[in-house]
Design a protein around this nucleic acid. Structure first.
Length: 925
RNA sequence: GGGCUCGUAGAUCAGGGGUAGAUCGUUACGUUCGCAACGUAAAGGCCGCGGGUUCAAAUCCCGCCGAGUCCA
C-alpha cells in the first residue's frame, strides 16, 4: 500500500529500475538492470571484505568529519551530539537513535528544532544484540548514527524524499562508490508510535544507511496499515536518516571485522595480553575471520544453535574441524567483545551513568560485568580503566571523557572490587551446594542454578566450572537464560492515571498561574469557571498545584459568606482543579461566581524554603562529590525535604558536613533567585541538559530558575533570595538503591526545630547518665563496657552458685533404683540459672534432675544422665508432663529439656508428678 | 518499578523453637637462639534493630534498618 511512496523522480531520472528480490521478495531500486537480488545480506553476501568500497580509507574521526562537512556544505547546520543517557526522555534510558534527541517535543511539532535542516553524529547505545557482539564481526553495542534531519510542516517544507535520496546518492558518489553496486531497498519503517516509508541503502551486502520518511502516527481510526497497526498522516513530516559511522569506516577499509577496522590498536593490545597471535597479514588467519563475518552476515548468532551452525559452515568452507575453529574463534571473539564493551562503558560513564542495580545504572553494570567475566576467561589482568583510557586516547573529539576520567577510574575500580567480592562469595556458595550434592550423588538441579544466578549473580557457567572441581555435575540447559526471563515475566501492567471529570475539563481554558508573576501575593479574586462535586476550576489562581516534587498549596476560598478550606490542588493539562472540604454540607459556589482565595502563607513559605534549599543542596553536593552528581528524585514537605542523588559510593559524614556548610554559605550570601522563561532549545543550548535535574517539563517554553550557581528548569515556588531560606540542616543520608544516595534535610523553621529536637535527645540522654552532653560518647562507651562485663560476671557467678548448689542437691537426692533423683524448686532462680544447675548435674551419669522456679510464671528444667536414659527416662517427656500441670508446655532432648507454665501454685504438684514418672519408668525397666 | 537471597565471634560461615558452634585470625603458655610449623589453653557474641506469638525465640510472624543479586 506504500508502493506509490517510492515512485520518485530521483529514481526515474537517474536510470534506476524497480525490481523484486528473487530471494526475499522485497522491492528495491538499482541502476543495474541485470541485478536480481536486493543486495542485502542474506540475499547477497558481504563482498566488501578485502575489497574496500570507497576510494580511500577513513578512520572514525575522518569519516565523521567528512560526513558532517558534506552536509554542512549543503545547507545543514551541524549540531553537537546529545548524551548517550537520554535524560530528556522518561520512556527510554539510552539514546538509541539520532531522532531520539528530538523526541517527543520536536517531532510532535510542539518545540522548534535547534536548526532546520540539521546534521549530527549521535553516539547511540543498543544492548539488544549483546550476545552477537564479537561473534558476528559486525555487531556493536555503541555506534554513532550520522544523520541529517529535516522537520517539515504542511506550510513550511524544507525538503522531503527526492532531495534526501539525491543527497545520499551524492554522498556515496563523492566517496567513489560504484553506482551499480548501490541498491535502495523498500522497507516500511515503524517504531515508537510513528511510521513511514523508508529505504535502506545497501552496498556490497552491507546496509550503510536507512532513510526514513516519518509522516505517520498511530491512530486507531487511521486507514494505513503497517505491520498490524493502523496509522494516519501527520501534519508535520520528518526526514529521519541514519548513516552508520562505523559501517562507513569498515566499508572504507574492508577489514575482516568491524572491530579491526575501528580500533586496531586496542584490539591488538588486548590480543597480545590474551596471548593470541592476531596477524591479519597472515592470509590464512585473515581468511578465517573474513569467512566468519561473511557467513555470520546471514544469521542471528545470538542463539547458541545458530552459532554452532555458523561454526560448521565456516569450518567446512575453509577445511578445518569445528573444534579447532572454535578454539581459535572463541578467544578472538571475546577480545572483540571486550573492545566493544569498554567503548560502551566509556560513553556510559563519561556521560554520567552510575553503575547500579536499577535502571540505566543496571545496564552499565551488566556491560561492565560481562566485560570482566570475559577478561577473566582470557586471563587479561589489567584494570578496566586502562582499556577505557585507550578508548579515550582514541577519541580526542570527546574531551569531556578525558575531564571525567578520574571519576570514571574511581567508579571502575570500585565496580571491579564489588565484582570480585561477588564472585568470591559465589564461589563459596557453589562449593557448599556442590559438596551437598556430592553426598547425594546428584547433579546440582536447575532450580538451584536459577536461584544462584537470580539471587546471587552467579553465572551458570561459573557454577559448572566450580562444581566440576569438586566432581559434581550441573543441570544447565541451553535455554537457561530464557528460563530466567520467564521467571521475571510476571510483571503486571501498570495502571494509567485516570483524570477525573476529563470530559468536562477539556472544554475549559488553561488556568492562569499568577504565582509566577506575583510570587509574594497570597490573596486574590477569581471567576469560577466550573464546579463539580467539591472541585472548583477558576480562571486564575495563586494556589500552586502539586508537581515537581512539591506538594500543593492549601488555604481557603470564600464566596459571599461561605468559606471553604482548600485541601488539595491538582493540575490536569494546564487546568488547575481546587478541591475543598465540605463535611456534611453543600458547596454554595456555582459557575460564574466570584470568589476570594487566600493561600496559607506558613505552608507556602515552608515549601518554598525547602524547594529553594533543594536546589542549593543539589549544587553543593555536586561541588563536593563531583560533576557526576545528578538528581534522581526529590520530594518536599513542610517539615523536611529529601533529595536523591546518583553517586557511586556512600556519602561520608565529612562530605555531608561539607555539603551542609557550603549550602548554608550560599544562604548567607543572600543571592537573589532569578527566574525567566526561555524557549526549550535556547535553554538547552545555554545551560545543557543539567537543566532537567527534576525531570523534563513539557511545553515549548521552560521556566529557568537560577539559585546561586544552580540552574534548572523548574515550575516550583521559590524564595526571592537565598537568605529567606534560613538555616539548612541535613538530617540523615541513606542509600535507597545501589548508586543512589538520599539526603534528607530541613530548612528554615523546620531546621531550627530539627536541631532543637536533636539537642533535647542529647540533653535527655546526658541527664539520665548525669553527665554533660559533651561527655556522652565517653560515658556511653564506658557504661556499655561495664554492662557487658557485669553480664559476664553475673553468668560466672550463676555457674559458681550452681556448682555449690549441686553438691547439696546431690546430698539431698533421693535414690530410686540406683539413680540419684533431684526434685527441687530453686527459689528466685531464672531459667538460665536452672539450666546451669541442670547442666552441672548432668556431669553425673546416674542423675535425674527436676528443677523448678517461680520466676516469671513457672520455669522447669530437667536433665537426665546417660545411665538414666538407658533406663528409659526421657527429659523431654518428663518436662512435657510437668508443664501441663502448671498450665504451659515444654520439651527438649532426652538428656535435657525445658518448659514452664503460668500457674506457680501448682509447682510442687508438677515436681511430685515428675518424681512419680521417674519411679514408674524405673519400675518398667 | 517488580522479584529473590542474606544480616550469628575480628574474618568466613554452620545451626533454624529447648545448654550459642566450627574454621581462620588474636592472646598466653610449651617446643625454638629467633621465625615458621606444631601442641595446649584462653579471650572474643544486645545471634542487625523494634514489635508479636510462646512456658521458652538466634530460630516462627510483622515492621524497620543494612547488604547482595536478577529482570523491565
Amino acid at each position: 500500500m506504500l508502493e506509490d511512496e517510492y515512485q520518485l523522480d530521483f529514481f526515474k531520472n537517474n536510470g534506476f529500475v524497480r525490481k523484486q528480490c528473487q530471494k526475499c521478495g522485497k522491492f528495491f531500486w538499482t541502476r543495474d538492470p541485470e541485478r536480481n537480488t536486493c543486495g542485502d545480506a542474506p540475499c547477497d553476501p558481504y563482498s566488501f571484505i578485502g575489497s574496500p568500497v570507497f576510494s580511500r580509507e577513513f578512520n572514525i574521526s575522518e569519516m565523521r568529519e567528512y560526513y558532517l562537512s558534506f552536509f554542512e556544505a549543503r545547507g545543514h547546520t551541524r549540531i553537537d551530539r546529545y548524551p548517550v543517557v537520554a535524560r530528556w526522555r522518561d520512556d527510554i534510558y539510552l539514546t538509541i537513535a539520532s531522532i531520539a534527541d528530538f523526541q517527543p517535543f520536536v517531532t510532535s511539532g510542539q518545540v522548534p528544532p535547534p536548526a532546520n535542516p540539521l546534521t549530527i553524529s549521535q553516539p547511540c547505545i543498543r544492548l539488544n544484540d549483546l550476545d552477537s557482539v564479537g561473534r558476528s564481526g559486525r555487531h556493536l553495542t555503541t555506534f554513532e548514527m550520522m544523520a541529517h534531519h529535516a522537520f517539515n510542516k504542511r506550510d513550511n517544507e524544507i525538503y522531503w524524499k527526492e532531495h534526501t535520496l539525491e543527497l545520499c546518492d551524492e554522498l556515496l558518489t563523492s566517496l567513489k562508490v560504484d553506482p551499480f553496486a548501490v541498491t535502495y531497498k523498500e522497507e516500511p519503517w515503524a517504531g515508537g508510535g510513528n511510521a513511514g516509508p523508508c529505504v535502506e541503502v545497501i552496498v556490497h551486502g552491507l546496509e550503510l544507511a536507512t532513510l526514513v520518511f516519518m509522516d505517520l502516527k498511530t491512530d486507531k481510526k487511521g486507514d494505513i496499515l503497517i505491520k498490524g497497526e493502523t496509522y494516519s498522516k501527520m501534519d508535520n513530516y520528518i526526514v529521519d536518516t541514519g548513516y552508520g559511522l562505523e559501517r562507513f569506516a569498515w566499508a572504507s577499509k574492508g577489514s575482516p571485522t568491524i572491530y579491526d577496522a575501528l580500533f586496531p590498536g586496542i584490539v591488538n593490545e588486548l590480543m597480545g595480553l590474551a596471548g593470541i597471535e592476531h596477524e591479519l597479514d597472515n592470509s590464512e588467519y585473515a581468511n578465517i575471520l573474513a569467512q566468519n563475518a561473511r557467513l555470520a552476515g546471514f544469521m542471528d548468532v545470538s542463539e547458541k544453535a545458530n552459532l554452532i551452525e555458523l561454526r560448521k559452515k565456516v569450518a567446512s568452507s575453509i577445511g578445518m574441524t569445528v573444534e579447532k575453529l572454535s578454539a581459535i574463534m572463541e578467544p578472538v571473539e571475546k577480545v572483540y567483545a571486550i573492545t566493544d564493551h569498554t567503548r560502551c562503558l566509556t560513553f556510559m560513564l563519561g556521560d554520567g551513568i552510575i553503575p547500579s542495580n536499577v535502571k540505566a545504572g543496571y545496564l552499565a553494570r551488566l556491560v561492565l560485568r560481562r566485560t570482566l567475566r570475559m577478561m577473566k576467561d582470557l586471563d587479561i589482568r589489567i584494570p578496566l580503566s586502562e582499556i577505557v583510557d585507550m578508548h579515550i586516547k582514541n577519541m580526542p573529539e570527546y574531551p569531556e571523557f578525558r575531564n571525567n576520567f578520574p571519576v570514571i577510574q574511581d567508579i571502575l575500580e570500585s565496580e571491579e572490587e564489588k565484582f570480585n567480592a561477588t564472585m568470591e562469595r559465589g564461589r563459596r556458595i557453589i562449593q557448599k551446594s556442590a559438596s551437598h550434592f556430592k553426598k547425594t550423588g546428584e547433579k546440582i538441579p536447575l532450580s538451584q542454578l536459577t536461584e544462584l544466578y537470580d539471587s546471587h549473580g552467579i553465572p551458570p557457567e561459573m557454577a559448572k566450572e566450580v562444581a566440576a572441581e569438586i566432581g559434581v555435575g550441573v543441570e544447565f540447559p541451553d535455554n537457561f537464560y530464557s528460563i530466567i526471563g520467564e521467571l521475571h515475566n510476571k510483571a503486571e501492567a501498570k495502571e494509567e492515571q485516570v483524570i477525573p471529570f476529563a470530559e468536562r475539563l477539556i472544554h475549559l481554558p488553561k488556568t492562569k498561574r499568577r504565582f509566577y508573576d506575583e510570587p509574594t501575593r497570597l490573596d486574590f479574586e477569581a471567576v469560577v469557571l466550573d464546579v463539580f462535586d467539591n472541585h472548583i476550576v477558576m480562571d486564575n489562581t495563586f494556589f500552586y498545584a502539586e508537581g515537581g516534587g512539591q506538594p500543593a498549596d492549601l488555604g481557603t476560598v470564600t464566596c459571599g459568606d461561605a468559606m471553604y478550606r482548600v485541601v488539595d490542588v491538582q493540575v490536569y493539562e494546564g487546568i488547575i482543579v481546587h478541591t475543598v472540604d465540605i463535611p456534611g454540607r453543600k458547596l454554595e459556589i456555582t459557575k460564574g461566581d466570584i470568589i476570594t482565595g487566600k493561600v496559607d502563607e506558613k505552608r507556602r513559605m515552608a515549601l518554598a524554603r525547602h524547594h529553594t534549599a533543594t536546589h542549593i543542596v543539589n549544587d553543593a553536593a555536586r561541588k563536593v562529590l563531583g560533576k557526576h552528581i545528578w538528581q534522581a528524585g526529590a520530594q518536599k514537605f513542610e517539615d523536611h525535604s529529601r533529595l536523591d542523588l546518583s553517586h557511586y559510593r556512600h556519602i561520608s559524614p565529612q562530605e555531608i558536613r561539607q555539603i551542609e556548610l557550603l549550602a548554608n554559605r550560599t544562604v548567607m550570601e543572600n543571592k537573589r533567585v532569578v527566574t525567566e522563561w526561555m524557549t526549550r532549545t535556547e535553554a538547552e543550548q545555554i545551560y545543557g541538559f543539567g537543566l532537567y535535574q527534576g525531570g523534563v517539563p513539557p511545553g515549548e517554553k521552560l521556566r529557568i530558575v537560577k539559585v546561586g550557581d544552580d540552574v534548572e528548569a523548574c515550575g516550583g515556588t521559590h524564595c526571592l533570595s537565598t537568605g529567606i531560606i534560613g538555616p539548612i540542616k541535613i538530617l540523615k543520608t541513606e542509600r535507597i538503591q545501589d548508586g543512589v544516595e538520599r539526603i534528607e534535610f530541613a530548612a528554615g523553621d523546620a531546621a531550627v526545630r530539627a536541631m532543637q529536637k536533636m539537642e533535647s535527645l542529647l540533653v535527655d540522654s546526658a541527664k539520665t547518665l548525669s553527665v554533660p552532653p559533651e561527655h556522652l560518647p565517653v560515658s556511653v562507651e564506658r557504661f556499655f563496657g561495664e554492662w557487658k562485663d557485669l553480664k559476664k560476671e553475673n553468668e560466672r557467678l550463676k555457674e559458681e552458685l550452681a556448682r555449690t548448689r549441686v553438691y547439696r542437691m546431690l546430698g539431698d537426692a533421693s535414690e530410686v533404683a540406683g539413680l540419684r533423683v533431684v526434685a527441687e524448686s530453686v527459689v528466685g532462680a531464672d531459667s538460665l540459672e536452672l539450666q546451669k544447675i541442670a547442666t552441672e548435674l548432668l556431669k553425673q551419669e546416674n542423675v535425674v534432675a527436676l528443677l523448678a522456679s517461680d520466676v516469671e510464671g513457672v520455669k522447669l528444667v530437667a536433665s537426665v544422665g546417660e545411665k538414666a536414659i538407658k533406663c528409659g527416662i526421657n527429659a523431654g517427656n518428663l518436662v512435657r508432663e510437668m508443664s501441663k500441670i502448671v498450665g504451659g508446655g515444654g520439651g527438649g532432648k532426652p538428656s535435657f529439656a525445658m518448659g514452664g507454665g503460668t500457674d506457680p501454685t501448682k509447682m510442687q504438684d508438677a515436681l511430685a508428678r515428675g518424681l512419680e514418672l521417674v519411679k514408674d519408668a524405673c519400675k518398667e525397666a
